[in-house]
Design a protein around this nucleic acid. Structure first.
Lengths: 127, 127
DNA sequence: TTATTATTGATAATAGAATATCAATATCGT
DNA sequence: ACGATATTGATATTCTATTATCAATAATAA
């Protein structure tokens, strides 16, 4: 389980490029499919290894939706939330945030963070 | 995978009782442990079978927190959200809701529902 | 009480996601 | 160009959560 990621390789370059060209979090299969267009014979293990390395260095961050396997997106975007389309299952970023979150918690509960997921139909699927 | 649940049994009675006495969603291990106090030799399979039956009839509802196995709570509570303690991992209900959720989504995204999870330290753990 | 059959419990099996293994290959400093 | 070794890809394995199997048991109607 080493995660050095020192050398520059075709596969990691391709995987990075996929994220740089994507405006939304990607699942592992999505990432694998897209990178495979560039790297034929790309292995799943390589994809997972790269993800772990990227997450470790902060270049990627995991996006977790209830009941779903992790998606990943570029790190350092700051606080934001996500939307999942019920038709295509894709996950999108939503900017902005909500207020008065702390007030919801019962007395003496210390609120440190929160995660909000919106569900519905995305622009692509609703047309 | 039959889920009839017709006959009245000690184990299902005990499992129901656990939920009736709990004020928060329970994980499968939590449910198993508590019901085992009443029913010695209770089997895991029985717990899962009961959960499925209860969910199917609406008596229970699944509570899904990102990256966590499902918890379960009594159904029909109406719209509410959840809090997870980072110390003890337990999940609690939080009443009330947030506003302006729809406004967060990008244009032409239809928002149908949302899920909010608060994270922090519960009253029990913070003392 | 008895017969029928739903239910249980122990355990094997499955499913999905992710990691470990290892020989072959590619990268990079010299 | 060479050598050390990081990385890759194929595949086996692990892990966690959950379901299937099946003989034994218990619940209910008659």
């Amino acid at each position: 389980m080493s995660v050095a990621a020192n050398r520059k390789t075709r596969q990691r370059d391709a995987l990075r490029a996929v994220f740089e060209q994507s405006d939304r979090p990607l699942s592992v299969p999505e990432l694998f499919d897209r990178a495979s267009r560039t790297i034929e014979g790309l292995g799943m293990a390589t994809v997972y290894r790269a993800i772990n390395a990227f997450v470790e260095e902060g270049w990627l961050e995991a996006v977790d939706i209830p009941g779903e396997p992790s998606r990943y997106e570029r790190g350092g975007k700051g606080h934001h939330h996500h939307f999942q389309c019920r038709r295509c299952e894709r996950v999108y970023d939503v900017g902005g945030c909500i207020e008065n979150v702390r007030k919801l918690a019962p007395a003496r509960f210390r609120v440190q963070d929160h995660a909000l997921t919106l569900y519905g139909v995305c622009a692509t699927c609703s047309r």
